[in-house]
Design a binder for these strands. Structure first.
Length: 421
RNA sequence: GGAGGGUUAGCCUAACUGGUAAGGCAGCGGACUUGAAAUCCGCCGUCCCUUAACGGACUUGGGGGUUCGAGUCCCUCACCCUCCGCCA
């Protein structure tokens, strides 16, 4: 959410930003409501002032043993008028909030203008795409031959899109998670958190999943709790409604959690195998920092996520998303795509975003510095999502004999094993 | 699930049978000082009055009610603590 005063004073800027993102906003309605709201506020506050003064006098009269019948009768009418105005103000505030919730965060000046995928800018590619002297198998074939996954039994338990890992497949998944957690806690200085996998509505509003994405999430109705679609939710909400100490920023958290997404309405080719599932594992990085350093922090976050792929020796590219592909709440976002040789395409394994104070304002996350209280900037990025990472890993390191060689950094996590198969 | 107690500003703590939130700590700015400590003054949640000054409204976990007036009384929801029950 943007600040009401900021929108008021920067109507054109907000309009341009929303347009660049392809979001429709009604700023005319905003201005109308905002003006009416301020007018009513002045009127109502004046009456309230009268009431406060009179009430004080009534109190004094009564204490002195004098009657206050006339004054009280008069105040009754005034209170009625205040009540009417109060309701009107509340009505307008409701509408105003609705309009403001529909206004997206503004893209940062460094974000390229554009409408869609073709306007995203590849800012980096790393590693060699592997070539094979045999026809490479895709991850489904490899998984079958090596007994790493069991999609049909996963479906039996919970439906399609719920993968089941087994044997070395399950161990490999666990190894990747531990490898990434150790990297981010050890080398990059993140504090590991193991949060609840369910979160309440307040959290979902804080990070912006609600009200828009309710249909994309799993809800436990009895308790009105949502299964988290990403660890961004619990990690960012860790400090919801708090005032942080400025000299302790930036705060850096990492968590492994499963992620649950209904992704209602997405079917077809993209859903095969691990490419799009309802439950997947992810290691997530979240930072809280002061506004001045958030873009530098974003570059660092990106580098820390990239390092996972570099250490694993997997080819990847980094794309800077254009305004049209930027999510509602983000100011700037890089996607990291890993190369999956048998799929013959890049798979998105991370989005690293700076939200500036958009989430912080919604979630009430502030910091104290120099006697003042300001909103922090929040950032997050996957570091990384394992399902697609696993796809790239087994496809990249496969041999003609349908083995999978393990890159050295992973071996300690699999008891020193060098290959699967 | 049952019973009781609690939630006051960044933190801690007050407020008679309803009378309009008092203090303390920490922090920031200033005065004093060679410097520091101590002391004193101001600031230290949100919003409105176009800006500033001045002023005003709101803020005692959220929402609602009674009242001229609610931290205080009533209803409701959330969370925390204690005990009981259940349980890995």
């Amino acid at each position: 959410m943007l600040d009401q005063g900021f929108i008021r004073e920067n109507i054109e800027l907000v309009e341009r930003g929303a347009k660049a993102k392809g979001e429709k906003v009604d700023l005319k309605l905003f201005s109308e409501l905002d003006q009416r709201w301020r007018r009513l506020l002045a009127q109502r506050d004046g009456l309230k002032h009268q009431r406060n003064v009179a009430s004080k006098r009534i109190g004094e009269l009564i204490r002195d043993g004098k009657g206050a019948g006339d004054e009280i009768a008069e105040m009754k009418g005034l209170s009625q008028r205040i009540k009417v105005l109060d309701e009107e103000v509340k009505g307008i505030e409701g509408k105003l909030r609705e309009v403001m919730l529909s206004i997206p965060n503004l893209p940062h000046e460094s974000v390229p203008r554009g409408g869609g995928d073709e306007d995203n800018v590849v800012v980096k590619t790393w590693g060699e795409k592997p070539s094979f002297d045999f026809p490479p198998r895709d991850h489904l074939q490899l998984g079958e031959l090596l007994s790493l996954f069991d999609f049909s039994r996963g479906s039996k338990l919970a439906g399609s899109g719920f993968p089941l890992y087994k044997g070395l497949g399950a161990q490999l998944e666990r190894a990747l998670i531990n490898f990434m957690l150790d990297l981010h806690t050890g080398k990059h200085g993140y504090l590991e958190v193991s949060p609840p996998f369910l979160a309440n509505r307040g959290c979902m509003e804080g990070t912006g999943q609600l009200p828009k994405l309710e249909e994309d999430m799993y809800l436990c109705e009895h308790d009105d709790l949502f299964l988290i679609p990403t660890a961004e939710v619990p990690l960012t909400n860790l400090h919801r409604g708090e005032v942080l100490e400025g000299d302790r920023l930036p705060l850096k958290y990492v968590a492994y959690t499963p992620c649950f997404r209904r992704e209602a309405g997405s079917y077809g080719k993209e859903t095969r195998g691990f490419l799009r599932v309802h439950q997947f594992d992810k290691v997530e990085l979240v930072k809280f920092c002061r506004p001045e350093s958030s873009y530098q922090e974003l570059e660092e976050l990106l580098g820390e996520a990239e390092e996972v792929l570099r250490l694993l020796g997997l080819a990847y590219r980094v794309r800077l998303l254009c305004t049209g592909d930027l999510s509602f709440a983000a100011s700037k976002c890089y996607d990291i795509d890993v190369w999956a040789p048998a799929e013959g395409k890049y798979l998105e394994v991370s989005s690293c975003s700076n939200y500036e104070d958009f989430q912080a304002r919604r979630a009430g996350i502030r910091f104290r510095e120099g006697g003042k209280v300001r909103f922090v900037h929040t950032l997050n990025g996957s570091g990384l999502a394992t399902a697609r990472l696993l796809v790239a890993l087994v496809e990249t390191y496969q041999t003609k004999e349908a083995e999978v060689l393990l890159p050295p950094p992973l071996r300690p996590y699999l008891g020193g094993r060098e290959r699967i198969g």
